[in-house]
Design a protein around this nucleic acid. Sequence first.
DNA 1: CTAGGGTTAG
Length: 458
Amino acid sequence: MTSSLACSVDPLLQANYQSFPPSHRCKTHRRPFHRREDLRRLLNQSRNCQQLLQIHAHIIRAGLASGDHADTSLLYHLLRLYSSFSRLDLASRLFRLLPNPSTFAFNLMIRAQTAAGEPIRSLRLYNRMIFSGVSPDKFTFPFVVRSCAACFDAAKGKEVHAFAIKTGFWRDPFLLNALISLYFSCGDAADGLRVFEKMRVRSVVTWTALVSGLLACGDLAAAQAAFDAMPERNVVSWTVMINGCARNGRPEEAFTLFWRMLKENQNPNSYTMVGLLIACSELGSLSLVRWVHDFARKNGMLKRGFYIGTALIDIYSKCGSIGEALKVFDEMPVRSLATWNSLITSLGVHGRGKEALELFREMEKKELMPDGITFVGVLCACARSGMVEEGLKLYKIMKEDYKIESGVKHYECLVELLNSVSIQGKPAELSSELSTSAQQMLVNACIAYGENKAMDMD
DNA sequence: CTAGGGTTAG
């Protein structure tokens, strides 16, 4: 029974087909599907990745995955669905097995790689596409330019730009808008502006890309002028401008823009709220944070997503209200790593080290991968709550178990840890306070920190 | 299958 699957190339899928419990397999499908229409219908109805894998197995069994009867449209459909479920791993496996990947297949993969935060792979794929003689189309170029932007590679962007001109896509608005963002985000304002000026039809998106680019270069005045000159504005344009003011030391203007936006009947969304919260942190006004929070709640923006919640935790804490930060965390429907990091850091800063560590443990239990920022949070929490031994133990865990490189921030926390020993009035002989291995680690850390500052403190 | 905008360390 395995033979028909075995020739089908991918052990993962073979194992997958076999791993379905017989009951499940039989209930939905008595026997493998052979008809393309059935398979297509199933693909259209699929709600999760498990189902996709199952259908994939059926496609293979029906002999439609390779050879003379390969049904490329089915496979491309499947490829699209894998990437829409953010399963880059499965998409790449499938992609590798396609006999002659079409432009469409390459486009899907190039886009999926960038979306997964792998812009370099995305660019490599583009190179391979060109090299193997598959012609790019109008979809390809915007994806590739966005990958260049993610790599801050303006030179590669120019190459792609040139090739797009050569192949006749020089006036594609999707490409040109992407190029504006690319050049500005690489600090190349002159080229960004040149693209903008050459465009004959400028959509809201084009204008917004310009405003956003000018803000990224810190040119608030030019951005403001461009914003005022826009023929029409939408939520994104307003949000970009609000965010830009908030991040460039003009929090009041961020709010002024927000009132204007409401007056012009533009509906703000969660992106807008985050911009306002950044402005709040600049203003340090707890009541204003509460107002924004309330506005977001009343407009149903807290029911999904984690950006507003994460920003709220950070800002409530910075405005002194750790209680409200905790409440936000508890009520969040979804959390990201940054959400956890934010609360851990907040608790630490507020001297509630024990709770910070509890939260860290809970995170580990949930098999959420901590990162360098998490450890800055826990180490700082330990330092401020005088938990020296725990701090050093965590530092060790960070390096040995999680293989996270320590950066300057981590060393700073270690120095603070050391300080906290003397703050507590225990004179600087760490010997009485720390285990031998802890002492050794501390010494090593201080040496690695590169200066004797740390040692001088005791 | 296309575009422009967001969270955490300091």
